[in-house]
Design a protein around this nucleic acid. Structure first.
Lengths: 118, 118
DNA sequence: CTCATTACTTACATTTATGTTAGTACTATA
DNA sequence: TATAGTACTAACATAAATGTAAGTAATGAG
């Protein structure tokens, strides 16, 4: 939950409104969003259970939270199939797909510049 | 301060080690780092006081904290001039400069895709 | 009736990020 | 002596992000 007013929030809002970089990072940042976006980018469309199994260390609560945020930000769409047991598929929206070059560059830069493990 | 062990930290370490995107975002993410990096990128070298005056809403403590983290991560260098009053200049290292295309792409994407204010 | 499957939700707890306020050492200048 | 400028630091406080454990509704299979 977020407070309705706090210096913290005011700063966030103001920076996101004035700095494109901060805005983009706010959309894709956080512990798990990069991984989620990467999976959706590479798989096209993923059922919730499959996405979850591909990320063994995230808790269900957090996964759902992140998916909801991505959905609210317009990057991911959620499609419910009226079946039993339920089936819900997530995929990138058009806006989300537009992130592809950004995600690839971030990934490449990290792989190229991360200190090696030896 | 960070705990020496927690699921939270373990997840962070593990993701950063396996996902280039997460690693990059960890370096440049957070409330103020994008702005700091942007200033240094455009100004070349900045004295602490000038940097601070260009960011009226950040508290000194946080600014110093972010600068220290950027320095520890090798993106920013800190040069002390033995004068009185003290003078300290910050600038991007070679590694930091390598981020330029990443930062520009993030900035351009945000400016292009941020919902307009009307 | 019992159990399994799916996509969640709820209540709670901990960890991390960010912010506030005051203070420091040094020296030049008035 | 008092004041101002610089680049910080310390103690404290709050907000936000992340994690844990358990529970739910619907239905088909056995």
């Amino acid at each position: 939950m977020r407070k309705e007013s706090s210096t913290n929030l005011e700063n966030e809002v103001q920076i996101n409104a004035s700095c494109g970089m901060a805005y983009t990072l706010d959309l894709i940042g956080g512990r798990w969003k990069p991984t989620i976006l990467w999976r959706l980018l590479n798989c096209g469309s993923l059922r919730y259970s499959k996405l979850r199994k591909s990320m063994p260390n995230i808790s269900e609560r957090i996964l759902i939270l992140q998916l909801r945020e991505l959905e609210n930000d317009g990057l991911v769409s959620r499609m419910i199939f009226p079946e039993v047991p339920p089936r819900v598929e997530y995929k990138l929206t058009e806006l989300g797909l537009r992130l592809e070059p950004v995600l690839r560059l971030l990934s490449d830069w990290g792989d190229a510049n991360r200190p090696t493990g030896d």
